[in-house]
């Protein structure tokens, strides 16, 4: 019983990480109709920024999150403005390929700079936890969970309450009409992609505190983000949060199913993906 409770707690906390991983991906997909295959690489870049600042300057990993966000926003904005805007009206296959090319370049640049060694960020409070009867809640994971939900809330506010959010939604629903009322398309696209990348940066900073990172660690994150978005449904922050939490549960309990194990993590994720795509392609909360 206590094992089950412990697993449940870990699954929910893991779900929070998936929310962070998927939220920017979901935004870019929903608004720009781009499957951003460089999303995982952005996450890893964020993780390396946190790792570098922690290792070199001793900066607390949670304090470096705004820096991750700002750096990745800049990178994302420039990529969209300079490259992706050039093929945004081409068939979706081309944006998929372009972001894959960007992913390949970033991952290998990271390999050239940081080598393929695994790195981890271990602040002094890394091992501490809150004991609640038979269940232990690791404090870092709890903090990461809280920040992930905060990020989701902030993004939701941004989209609903600000002029930028209104412009982004206008562009998503009707490009030409948005242009007629004076919205700068190129800038708005780049902003959207930049915000998506900034979310990835924060996710990377969070991930560096809960697992070891390496330049090639990004690909599974992209795939997980995809599964989460498909699971929850496209088009709202709430759907991504639900999808992320659900995916955390599926992964933790799927791996403890008889005959399966940690070696089957991706296989489980994709079995879920294919089943959802076939049974309910719009996702649980999709329109």
């Amino acid at each position: 019983m206590s094992l089950l409770a412990q697993q449940l707690v870990l699954a929910i906390l893991l779900g929070g990480v998936y929310v962070a991983v998927a939220i920017g991906f979901s935004l870019v997909w929903g608004i720009l109709n781009i499957i951003n295959l460089s999303h995982g690489a952005f996450i890893v870049v964020g993780a390396y920024i946190t790792w570098t600042l922690f290792g070199r300057l001793g900066l607390d990993p949670f304090l470096s999150l705004p820096i991750d966000a700002a750096a990745l926003f800049a990178l994302g904005y420039l990529l969209q403005r300079g490259l992706i805007n050039r093929v945004i009206r081409a068939p979706v296959f081309f944006t998929l390929l372009l972001t894959f090319g960007v992913n390949l370049a970033i991952v290998n640049l990271l390999l050239a700079v940081f080598t393929s060694d695994f790195r981890s960020v271990t602040p002094p409070y890394a091992g501490s936890g809150i004991v609640l009867g038979p269940v232990v809640i690791p404090s870092i994971r709890l903090a990461a969970f809280a920040i992930a939900l905060l990020l989701a809330a902030l993004l939701s506010l941004l989209m609903r309450r600000t002029r930028i959010g209104a412009a982004i939604q206008a562009v998503a629903s009707d490009r030409d009409a948005a242009q007629l009322v004076g919205i700068d398309l190129r800038h708005t696209y780049a902003l959207t992609y930049g915000i998506g990348a900034a979310c990835a940066g924060v996710a990377g900073g969070l991930l560096s505190t809960v697992q070891a990172i390496s330049p090639t660690a990004g690909e599974p994150y992209t795939l997980q983000a995809f599964v989460v978005v498909v699971l929850g449904g496209l088009g709202s922050v709430t759907a991504t949060v639900v999808g992320g939490l659900l995916f955390g549960l599926i992964e933790v309990f799927g791996q403890s199913a008889p005959g399966l194990g940690a070696g089957y993590a991706n296989a489980i994720a994709f079995a879920v993906l294919v089943i959802v795509l076939i049974v309910r392609p719009q996702g649980l909360l999709g329109r």
């Binding site: 490259l83 390929l97 894959f100 090319g101 960007v102 390949l104």
Partner: peptide
């Protein structure tokens, strides 16, 4: 191999943009 992969990435981007 790392630089070959970077080149492939750049080539992919250039192809998609200029030689669809």
């Amino acid at each position: 191999g790392v630089y070959t992969q970077i080149l492939l990435g750049v080539l992919l981007a250039v192809t998609v943009i200029f030689l669809p």
